[in-house]
Design a protein around this nucleic acid. Structure first.
Lengths: 218, 218
DNA sequence: ACGAGTGTAGACAGACCTGTCTGTCAAGTG
DNA sequence: CACTTGACAGACAGGTCTGTCTACACTCGT
């Protein structure tokens, strides 16, 4: 029996994961009980525990899956907009706007996960951190491609702006948030980029040693 | 019996609130049960329910209290640094650094509260939103005092940067985060401010109508 | 035909959760 | 002294949570 053969039906595992993803994101990890997931996905309890030995396993799988899907979507959304001539880091804001417009948007699943997880639960927090590091790395490469000054610092700035934008969108619901995000993103790493505006300095080589970020964590 | 007479002892209510504040912030709202709070604050169950008819009431009181205390601390921390000649919006980053250095720092209690609260719990979310609106308003007045261009827009930018900084500090623990925040804050509303660097435009009057933020919410 | 794998249905255990209730004690006040 | 007020101690109810277990059905490949 090959791999293709066993995946012909939607399957219990898939239904569980789909339901769990929706509920975990909408209501929170802790607020969603396994009984609810089992009932809503129309599955037997033993089927649930056959596929996921514990709720934690399901949560971790949910986070990994969410990382995969979100990253694929985000990368495409950015790359698509990047094709336009003269496009820069600010296209990220437009991608985010698209995300925020989804009717069930409730912030970043990873920020939310960390927010409701005590420090002792190591695994969940680790997955969330990895997701963010992945995003940061993507932005650093993007900064390089765009010939921004100091890609590492530019990525660090972009991360702050992006996280802030997501949180603001979640908490206020204000539709102006992506526009403000766009302004901010346009201002980073602007030294060797788009010489038309030509305002060098002021950012990226600010006072004191602003870019000693090579050695991290004390 | 006047008001002064009944508040002579530390009291059960105070102990409950103190314990709850610590546990709610450290472990999350949902992860902290009333039994634990009652046990750790050395109080009888009925004393607890006399002062707080339900757990929700305690949570709301916790949030209101946290808002009061944090706001007092933050205002002072900013005002103190603002006295220095030439100080601008970036002093906020230094205040945040001070906060992040606290050993039990685990992000913003209000972001965390919203993150773990399903949309249907209106009251908690409302208090959190009010807290953020209060902060935004403070920043707008600050922007005015500093003669930044478009105070409303400057405050909107600052909010994104601040929220992002808090989330980054919480998720990565990277001690460089406040420095990056500082760079970003220095770049906002820079048109009529600190003419030495003199890089006008590029921000605040970016492409399209970036500052139509007067009409909010659709 | 048979066994392995996957599924459903639902009882059950044991922990934990919020909230109620009874009863005792000590300090302050008329 | 009698009485009120606030606090303590802890049993209890009723619900929900995670996770286990038994029993039965269907579909494969061999």
């Amino acid at each position: 029996m090959d791999v293709a053969a066993r995946n012909q039906t939607p399957g219990a595992r898939e239904r569980i994961l789909e339901t769990a993803s929706r509920l975990f994101y909408r209501d929170g990890l802790r607020a969603t009980g396994v009984d609810t997931i089992i009932a809503k996905s129309g599955v037997a309890k033993m089927s649930f525990y056959r596929h996921f030995p514990s709720k934690s396993d399901l949560i971790e799988e949910f986070l990994r899956r969410r990382h995969d899907r979100w990253t694929v979507w985000f990368t495409k959304a950015v790359e698509r907009r990047l094709k336009k001539r003269g496009a820069g880091m600010e296209v990220v804001a437009d991608a985010l706007r698209e995300w925020f417009a989804e009717p069930d948007f409730r912030g970043c699943a990873f920020i939310n996960a960390v927010a409701e997880t005590p420090l002792r639960q190591a695994e969940q927090n680790a997955i969330a951190r990895q997701h963010k590091e992945h995003l940061r790395s993507f932005l650093e490469k993007l900064a390089e491609r765009l010939s921004l000054s100091d890609p590492e610092n530019s990525a660090a700035q972009a991360m702050i702006i992006i996280e802030g934008t997501i949180v603001r969108a979640q908490m206020t619901g204000d539709p102006e948030v992506p526009a403000t995000c766009r302004q901010l993103l346009q201002s980073i790493g602007a030294s060797s980029h788009r010489p038309a505006l030509g305002n060098a300095g002021s950012l990226g080589k600010g006072r004191k040693s602003a870019t000693k970020s090579s050695r991290k964590r004390a």
